[in-house]
Amino acid sequence: MADTPWALYMGCVIPNRLPYMEVAMRETLSYFEISTQDISGFTCCPNPLTLSHIDHEAALAISARNLAIAEEKGLNILTPCNGCFEALKGTAACLQEDAELRAKVNTILSKTGHEYKGTIQVKHFIQFLFEDIGLGTIAESVALPLNDLVVATHIGCHILRPSNLLNVDDAQRPTILHQLVRALGAKTVQYPDEMDCCGYGTRPADKDMALKMTGNKLENMKFAGAEALVVICPACTLQFDLMQRLALRDTEDKTPLPVFYYPELLNLALGISPDKMGFNLHRVKVNPVLNKLLPDLALPTT
């Protein structure tokens, strides 16, 4: 795949707080020989949970500026973050269907010397794996089938909804993450309130409520028999991994549930050494799962 149309848009949470997600993503891209470009000029997507709540029009203009930066270089955008995806893809779709709004946003953008013409594609990395690499290629590439692993999936809200703008998967019964996990040989469980928010979205207004939502979901996943959780979004990762101890404070079952970013699990199944990833940076230790998949590692679990 020589001439690449993809610019990487990493956002801010992954590069700063969860760099191991970026390491895993870049390993996957390199395995499948997808060349991408790191370009300069991007700013905040901006966060669809904060800036657009104060001024939606400014949020559209800031997103459109990012789209224009990639468009000027003849590139499409590939992002590993649900929030960035919603902001960028949602804006691209909004401006596609509403020429009047696009003109208005471009009037604002002209003050920065940019114009968004509306020619670029925005894809979430997981959508790219599903649509452009494909389940077939992924399944054929598996060197270490994850046969005995039972996982819960949480795809997150902002890759799916509003579905009229994002159009990635069924907004209420999405299957792509289940299918991608199963392509590795692992089993996925379904659990009550699977489609509910991780809690992150309500954090700025009420941190305790956010934790209660996270705790409820973790309990449901464990009750359904999951021994790990698979996510695809840094905000969900912050809630489920970094905040897990606090989230489980008021739940009955306090057993930790290791959290994996899908590309990490994919890379393990592809035979990529765990040493090449930043598993030590997870807050909830993943060693029990790594030992199960690769018994020779005999990693400490306490």
Binding site: P15, N16, P19, Y20, E22, V23, R26, D38, S40, G41, F42, T43, C44, L51, I54, D55, E57, A58, A61, I62, R65, I108, L109, K111, T112, H114, G278
Partner: peptide, 25 residues
């Protein structure tokens, strides 16, 4: 971790301020 450093975006910062001023933000 072998990752590239995060680029500093001076022009981007300036542009965001321009947008915030041009809108009601």
């Amino acid at each position: 971790l072998g990752l590239p450093p995060i680029p500093l975006e001076e022009k981007g910062k300036k542009d965001l301020h321009t947008i915030a001023k041009a809108t009601e933000l």
